[in-house]
Simulated scan of single mutants.
Amino acid sequence: MKTILTNKHIYIKTRKRALQCYIEPVLMYGCEAWTISKQIQNKLEAIEMWFLRRMLRIPWTAKKTNERVLNEANKRRSLVRTIRKRQATFLGHVMRRGKLEHLVTTGKFEGKEVEEDKGRR
C-alpha cells in the first residue's frame, strides 16, 4: 500500500480513502475489547500522524507541527474517536443481549443470598 499512499499522481482524497478503507480496519481489529490508557491513546494518535506524514511525503526531520500537517491533509484526528465509538456500540450490544456477557459486565446475578453473606453487609 506504500506505493499507493505515497503516489503524488493520485489525489490526496483518494489516498485518504484508501487509508480509511484498507489500513485502519486492520489497525483497529478487536479494538472493542481494548483498554485505552493515555499511553496507548498517544501511540494511536502518533500512528495516525505517521500515516498522514507518509502520505504527504513530509519527512520526520521537517519542523511541521501536527496541526499544520492536519491542515495540509484537510483532516481531523479521528482514529481514537472511532475506536471509542466502536467500544460504546459494542457495550450497548452486550447490555441489550442479557446473557453471560451482561452478567459479567454488571455483576448482578439472580438467586437467593446465602445467610452468611447477609451478615457481612
Rank of each mutant, 00 (worst) to 15 (best):
M1P: 05
T3W: 14
H9K: 15
I10E: 02
Y11I: 11
I12M: 08
I12Q: 12
I12S: 09
T14H: 06
K16P: 02
R17F: 03
R17H: 05
Q20I: 02
C21N: 12
I23P: 00
L27R: 04
C31K: 03
A33S: 14
A33R: 14
T35E: 09
S37M: 04
K38S: 13
K43L: 07
E45Y: 06
I47S: 06
E48A: 05
M49I: 09
F51C: 14
R53G: 03
R54P: 01
M55I: 06
L56K: 00
R57Y: 03
I58N: 01
W60R: 12
W60G: 03
W60N: 15
A62N: 05
K63S: 08
K64D: 03
T65G: 12
N66R: 07
N66Q: 06
N66W: 01
R68N: 10
V69C: 02
V69E: 00
N71T: 15
E72P: 06
A73V: 01
N74F: 03
R76Q: 13
S78V: 05
L79G: 00
V80W: 00
R81H: 10
K85G: 07
R86A: 09
Q87Y: 00
Q87F: 00
H93C: 11
M95P: 14
M95W: 06
G98K: 08
K99F: 04
K99A: 08
K99S: 11
E101S: 09
E101H: 10
L103S: 15
T105L: 11
T106R: 03
G111I: 00
K112Y: 04
E113M: 13
E116K: 12
G119W: 01
R120I: 13
R121M: 08
